[in-house]
């Protein structure tokens, strides 16, 4: 699996990666619009440099190992390729934007101004470069080797080597090694990179895990509810028959109401979790 390692301490903020990305992906000029976040990224910019004090942090899609966007998409328009990049198939998309909601880094952006809008984000140049064994435009353009491309395991080893050689230079962690289940874009940074996340930082585990339990419960709940309903109807029907037999004017209405009402609710609650 291929990956990108960005060493924040080596970045001089020249934005050559941005220019290379624009050229490679033939991106149009990024006009300021009401809906863009003020962080440099937009439907027309897949990477940007954010300046934090003296550090220049390059933002881009993290290409998670277990991408929340791909897990959320109802039609599977997003998927993790075996080479590493997370890519988007616009022909499947129906525009629900659940991927944008799910991404913990707020990476996917939308073409709000268009009447045929698509989701846009960094694809790690999968189609034209990575799939063919070449490196992405951004890492190729970097003049200081601040952002480099390679096998994820090798890059991780390199990152830990740098941490070992000069521990004072960095925060003592490789961002992306384990957070949100690991990402294919790794960072070494002198400052905490929590600001790259959206909302409350919840990066201990992969987000798709959170819906798995609920989704796995779907078939058993479906069958279970059906069975309970049939059972309840049968029991009540039988009780009514018996009651009708003993006393022709059904005095059992109230009784069956109370009993069945609470019973059913208890039943459905048991089935749910």
């Amino acid at each position: 699996m291929r990956a990108i390692l960005t060493d924040v301490t080596k970045c001089i903020g020249c934005e050559k990666c941005v220019a290379a990305c624009v050229t490679e992906n033939k991106l149009p000029p990024a006009l300021p619009a009401r809906w863009t976040r003020d962080d440099g990224l937009s439907a027309e910019r897949f990477t940007a440099i954010e300046r934090k004090g003296t550090s220049n942090v390059r933002k881009q899609c993290r290409h998670c190992l277990e991408p929340a966007c791909a897990s959320a998409c109802p039609v599977g328009a997003l998927h993790k390729t075996p080479e590493g990049p997370v890519v988007y198939d616009s022909s499947k998309c129906l525009g629900c934007r659940y991927c944008m909601m799910a991404c913990p880094f707020g990476i996917p952006r939308y073409q709000w101004g268009s009447t045929v809008p698509y989701v846009r984000k960094c694809t790690m140049c999968h189609e034209n470069r990575v799939k063919l064994g070449r490196q992405p435009a951004c890492t190729e353009a970097c003049p200081t080797q601040a952002t480099i491309f390679g096998e994820r395991t090798e890059l991780l080893a390199e990152a830990h080597r740098r941490l070992g050689v000069d521990p004072a230079r960095y925060q003592p962690a490789v961002w992306g090694e384990t957070d949100v289940g690991g990402t294919s874009v790794l960072y070494l940074s002198p400052i905490p990179l929590d600001f790259l996340g959206v909302g409350r930082v919840q990066h201990e585990r992969a987000l798709p895990e959170l819906t798995v339990t609920a989704m796995e419960a779907v078939p058993p709940v479906f069958v279970g509810v059906g069975a309970v309903l049939a059972g309840v109807r049968w029991i009540i029907g039988r009780r009514m028959k018996l009651a009708d037999g003993s006393s022709p004017h059904g005095g059992s209405h109230d009784g069956s109401h109370g009993g069945s009402g609470t019973g059913s609710r208890g039943g459905s609650k048991e089935k749910k979790p």
Partner: peptide, 16 residues
Amino acid sequence: NIWHMVIYWNPHSPLF
């Protein structure tokens, strides 16, 4: 494209 859910499946997605 709303009908895409019929042919493109992603059972992991609650929205699906």
